[in-house]
Amino acid sequence: MNLPFILFFICALLAVLGAVLLIIAREPIHAALSLILVMIALAVLYLLLGAEFIAAVQILVYAGAIMVLFVTVIMVLNAEAEERTDFSKIAKWVGLPLGFVLLFAIAHWLYRAHVGPVVASGAGIPAHALSTWDLSTELFRHYLFPFEATSFLILIAVLGAMILARRDE
């Protein structure tokens, strides 16, 4: 029982709890807050794996930028609490069992991959956290084309959003 081990289970539980709350919550703001909880718990999990940069960017981009935008939009639209309709019969009789089957399948594969002992012993944590230097060398040397292509794609998306938003004028 070392510290990363305990932290892993706390954050894993928090992430699952946040994800469940996100679906159960009826107020949109509560759902958004649960999603933020998931993001932060995931960031701590990244940190446990030695991926400092990914952890910081996870909080910075998802919790700090995207979710802030979500919360602002919910506030601007003043979204009301969701109304609950009756569960659909198919979801109840087919969806739930299938969901459990999927969960079982994932657990089975994880068990066979022997991830548990690695996590428990803390052996999965690299001795040296990956530095930003290594990361940028990889990103701007080996993966330069995918990186540039992605940024171009995002630029197109930004322009598209602006055109769609200003179509009426």
């Binding site: 910081a56 960017v57 909080i59 919790a63 700090g64």
Partner: peptide, 14 residues
Amino acid sequence: SNIGLLFLFAITSM
């Protein structure tokens, strides 16, 4: 931290 500035911005952005 090695990336203290990023963490600080991450915290303040929230």
